[in-house]
Design a protein around this nucleic acid. Structure first.
Lengths: 216, 216, 216, 216
DNA sequence: CATGAATGAGCCTTCATTCAT
DNA sequence: CATGAATGAAGGCTCATTCAT
């Protein structure tokens, strides 16, 4: 019988892996925390000190886990994407008719503003900043592409369920829908709280109405 | 003939008016100068020092004419709008057929990116910042409304020339077109210089193709 | 007759010059103040905050007059040199015999340690740092050359008064004397206060004894 | 024959000794590693993190073996001295004529710059810092004394081989030679790489020429 | 024993704003 | 009126040091 090694002499590879995983966990925690602040204040107004203060960590920790502000932001954006870029996939997979998909998609668009408004504001902020700040471009372009692909999955499935073809190319389709989404987000964010639900239901209705015309 | 009075003995009312006019002139000159810098660097990265340095004025004068950075920005945005919010009116007024209007509009959209790209980048930046910074909201909402109205003038005229009705409401129409415009601006700004003209001609083609479907 | 212009419209060139001169005056004042702190703490331990605190100015002023720490330091070194690089010239010019020059020079070497010790410590610190920090090299090499030239003026005059020739080249001569000077400065700085005068008189005696052998 | 006891059952005294020895070994390894970094960056620019990163140890271990940065530096200096303070002793012992010793010494001076330049830069840095930082004084003074003694061994042996007496006292002799050495080190470190060998051969020649005059 | 996570003071720099002249 | 001098609060970042594991 082979004695199982005492924990203290556990194989180094495993311990290194554990450590690395813990490291990543912290980065994720920090990113999550940072995203809240970023969503509230926007890119330019958010300082690393602020981020730390709104988390349970000290100022130094942020610099311990991220070598620069830029790296933190980039990490945050990518972290955020992991969740968001598949937001409609469940709808795509489980809808059984074109009408159902169309309705659920339109509803979900509004819902995601209601529930993650600041996160979307941050996204548009970053996408814009990337026009001034080359350092942001890579990650923004990467995610923008994924968002377009996500929308395209919705549309192609929608077309399939309807037995038709998409009328427009992926990019145009994304541009139009994104324009409507951004517009509603803006109205939602800047309008009076009392009008928020109206803004969202208008969005839902619009997209619901519009979708058929996205098919040829 | 009336001798023109020396400034120092002018009647008080006239001198006050002259002063006020000079005051406004200075503000406009500063705004014009500031807009160039703002378009290049974006809202957050532009400091008042920078603005002053890129103008013929001293650092102090900026605060002499504007009580704060915020007021300067607000003034700049309004100043900028005066020019821009009528950008397509000439096309609306002089086009004699739906096809002509449609083509000239689509062309002009691309042209304005080529010639005033940074100014548009600034606009989207400010519109976004206004979601985080309430102080910017009033002026941004005001201008956004004017932009929507401008687009609506295009569409209603387009419909009239075609002998049809707009298919969508003003807001939806604006949202969709603005989405396509923003998308192209982004690609234009972040892509390689060599691809810029391609981006613009794609935009022109898209809008040209799309416009008929904006009519009922 | 030409009316002499009122002061308020004085010729711009003159006012610009006055301004520039005032600007330079402030830089000099700041440099002077900074040198005290630098001499006390050394290059690495001196922060711009510290410099400001030991002056009558605020922290921001330092950055207003110097674009970076490096520029301040460089300016300080050059400012300091203006005074120092001619330290022995009066002795060179007014001594009427080799013996007098030799004695006065040896005495002055010690005196300058007593009266400007920290400044010399700073010089050796900077010269050393320049081996690690390329940014300092230019100014340090420039001044080192001037110091060597200064010493050489002493030696050539000394040789002339003695009716002989220098035995060594300028560089070797400077290296040897500088070695003795640095050694005494070090002993003076690190030894007990009670031994300081002894250190200085030893230096004087040594140099006095040594100088004849610097002639051929 | 005595069975060597397994470590875990060693008698306490031996194990304590072993531990202590291991402790010292670690300190030496760390010192050796630290010296490389210190020589490259200088005292002020070297952080403990940097040292750890350039060694095979973790960041924490530095503080485990040294209670503070200061103690590490001090230890490093002493460690370095062990090697260096006897650098010329072999020459002293094996040279069989004054001329041989003189030539070999002059050659060796240049050689040690070539081969251990950074280490000498560090020494001058530390000696200088000790004028600002009392904590460094003790160890610096100790080593400076040993260097002086080392030089004196050279000179007295040189005098003996030449059948003469040293012309100057140990301190003066050391000061002068050290001045020349420091000067060459500085030129070697800050000048263009292409001039390095020239600098060294000049030093060799100078010292070679000078040494006879160090005898009475 | 040894590690790396965590801390917080401090550094250089930027900037909107105020103010004496 | 207009200027640039001056201020002080942040901001990103580094680092020696402490500590839980």
């Amino acid at each position: 019988m082979t004695a199982s090694p005492s924990p203290s002499v556990a194989d180094p590879a495993a311990s290194a892996a554990a450590r690395a995983s813990k490291h990543d966990t912290r980065r994720d925690q920090l990113a999550e925390s940072a995203l809240v602040t970023l969503g509230k204040l926007g890119y330019a107004r958010t300082s690393l000190r602020e981020i730390a203060q709104h988390s349970s960590y000290s100022h130094g920790v942020v610099h311990y886990y991220f070598s620069s502000k830029e790296e933190l932001i980039t990490y945050c954006v990518r972290y955020y994407k992991r969740t968001c870029v598949t937001r409609y996939d469940e709808i795509v997979e489980t809808s059984t008719s074109a009408t159902e998909l169309q309705e659920r998609f339109a509803t979900k668009l509004a819902e995601t503003i209601r529930e993650e408004g600041p996160m979307h504001q941050l996204w548009y902020d970053l996408r814009n900043q990337s026009m001034f700040e080359p350092a942001l471009r890579e990650v923004v372009l990467e995610i923008d592409g994924q968002l377009e692909a996500m929308i395209w999955r919705v549309i192609t499935r929608y077309a399939a369920l309807a037995g038709r073809e998409p009328a427009l190319d992926p990019s145009t389709t994304y541009g139009m829908l994104d324009g409507l989404f951004a517009q509603s987000l803006f109205a939602w964010a800047t309008g009076p709280a009392s009008a928020r639900e109206d803004v969202l239901s208008v969005l839902t209705r619009r997209v619901d109405t519009l979708m058929p015309s996205l098919l040829g």
